[in-house]
Amino acid sequence: MPRVAPRLLKKALKAHSLLPLLLPACRSIEQSAQEFRWIRNELPNMKQVRQACLQRFKLVPLQYILGNQPFGELDIVCRPGVLIPRWETEEWVCELSERLLGSMGPLNSPFPIWDLCCGTGCVGLLLQRRLGPGCSLTAVDVTDAALGLCVENAHRNDLERPRLIATDVLTKKIVPDSRISLLTCNPPYIPKNQFAADTSPSVKRHEPQLALIGDLEFYSSLVNTWIHHTDSFVYEVGDRRQIEYVMHGIRDDPRLQLEWCVGYRLDSSGCPRVVYGYKAESSLAGALSGYGDLLYIPPGAGK
């Protein structure tokens, strides 16, 4: 971790005695002051504020300290052991829900959504909030802590309790009872060899590796298994390679190549963030075709 310049520490100390504690995590005075304001707004007394700053000095994520993170219009409870929702995820979920609403209007036919690797449940729950009671959410995760948090979050935001499945998506075969309309997933996507170098210290030390380290296995389970049960999918990715893997998996499969469109989407800071696909014939085609840039269109599907 890069050191903090003494000059900066001195300046922070002048503003407030606790501010220097936030500098290692925030790097700048402005951001430290901003975080300090948030901490003070959320915590009732100075003793807890001091505790929070000391924890932050150890690079504990702010979301674990305060116990929540806004996600769209939801307030998501966060606890150690479950991945904290990222702004990139918030961005693509918001955009996705708006597109779906814009092209389909309020749902009247059943719209089953499956959220794999649900974690706090943020992705599925925000979709449920926005699309309305027509959609039914099934949340799948391997840890009970995540599923418990998902239920808690549904309750906290006055949403219907999602159906929960505690299982490992990779090893257990699940056959959904009905056809899935939308499959979402934010799988672990940091390759093990990059974890040490590319991941920030706070994430490395305090967030669960189970939710972070992974590479192509979830994308491979998508193109081999899950894709046969759904009409569309949206998977978060960490780099371009993972997008290409999914695209090749579909383009090179004799059956899938005839019906699936595949595209990708960048986040606001220009990084590849999402790979998505839909059946060219499905009713979701209108909503999803402009979601990002299309990489593959099946022959004869037209524009």
């Binding site: 925030c26 975080e35 990222r86 672990p188 606001s268």
Partner: peptide
Amino acid sequence: RSFRPDEIRIDVMRAGGKGGQHVNTTDS
């Protein structure tokens, strides 16, 4: 939505890097 995409630019003020699960920034 009512703005044309070429009319506006939205910048998130963040340093480069891989983003996503790699970092957990509070800078919003």
